Computed example of a mutant assay.
Amino acid sequence: MGKFPTANKSFGQHFLNSPTVIKKITSPLPEGCDAIIEVGPGPAVLTPHLAEYKKPIFVIEMDERFVEILAPVVGAENIFRQDALEFDWKNFLETKKFKSIWLVSNLPYNVSVPLTLAFLRIPEITQMTLMYQKEVAQKILPNDLRNAMGSLHVLMQTQFDLSHVVYAPPGAFIPPPKVDSQVLNFKRKALPLIPLKDIDVFEVYLRLMFANRRKQLGGILRKEWGAEKTISSMQEAGLSMEIRAEALTLNQVLKLYEISSRYSLKP
């Protein structure tokens, strides 16, 4: 790879420098994709590979140093110089009319979760290939689900089919971070397990359930719902009051949510 500029720590920059990892991230093109958006492209490491697909491609980049590098690849008019968390998706989609966007990013680790939760809420983003700090990636897609259930995993599973793409050690970046990284792929479900219009309420429910995921779930819910409704809800879901949230299955989490919604039990 070519020489990189000095990384800006305030943007959490670590420039990918591994041809193997780059190839894994940028191929293949998802079926039915009608546009590509790259968040935080930096010095155009992934961008030329994505541009080879000859699809409309747009980039969201805060660092003005990279505009001259990116412009010949995607066109100056397709560069959005702003914070991805503040990107106006509504205006962009009303203007461009895309229906199936592939979003690709070596995410800044300090805002990777807020960005992921923002992308989840855009139904036109039908596929994502995203780089995370490995510790965060394991919260989204644990290698071992035994006693590993958490709110981020459940939330993403309701909207996407998740899969591992590749691990990236510190040496795959310039400068090398102090942690390992992992790339995940997200393919939006044709039929989400929770309607997207209800995702805000569901997220609040998950925060209640998993705030103390190693404590007995019955005790946590009793403080919010009262003893009688908690006991009846847990019994209907076939759950012991002593079970810990981390030991639940996805189906059990969804079942208890359905029961709580029917009883109008608000977190």
Rank of each mutant, 00 (worst) to 15 (best):
F4L: 12
T6I: 13
N8A: 09
S10M: 11
G12I: 08
Q13S: 05
Q13N: 06
Q13C: 05
F15R: 05
L16A: 08
L16W: 04
S18R: 02
P19T: 01
K23L: 11
K24S: 13
S27Q: 14
S27G: 13
L29D: 00
L29G: 01
E31F: 11
C33G: 04
D34V: 10
D34R: 09
I36H: 00
I36R: 00
I36Y: 01
I36G: 00
G40W: 10
P41R: 09
G42N: 00
P43Q: 04
V45L: 08
P48D: 15
P48V: 15
H49L: 13
E52N: 14
Y53S: 15
K55A: 04
P56Q: 15
P56E: 08
I57C: 07
I57L: 15
F58Y: 15
F58S: 06
F58E: 04
F58D: 03
V59C: 07
I60H: 00
M62W: 01
D63A: 07
E64C: 04
R65P: 02
F66K: 05
V67I: 15
V67L: 13
E68Y: 04
V73Q: 03
V73R: 00
G75C: 11
G75Y: 11
G75K: 08
N78H: 14
N78S: 10
R81K: 10
R81P: 01
R81H: 10
R81W: 03
Q82C: 07
Q82E: 12
Q82K: 12
A84L: 05
L85W: 05
E86R: 10
F87T: 12
W89E: 11
W89Y: 11
K90A: 10
K90I: 09
N91M: 07
N91A: 14
F92R: 04
F92P: 02
F92D: 04
E94P: 01
T95N: 13
K96V: 06
F98N: 01
F98C: 05
S100Q: 12
W102G: 00
W102I: 04
L103R: 04
V104A: 06
V104M: 09
P108I: 09
Y109A: 09
Y109W: 15
N110R: 07
V111A: 07
V111F: 06
S112D: 06
V113P: 06
P114D: 03
P114Y: 01
L115E: 03
L115F: 09
T116L: 15
A118N: 10
A118M: 13
F119N: 05
L120A: 06
R121C: 08
I122F: 01
I122P: 00
I122N: 02
I125C: 08
T126F: 06
T126W: 05
Q127K: 14
Q127P: 07
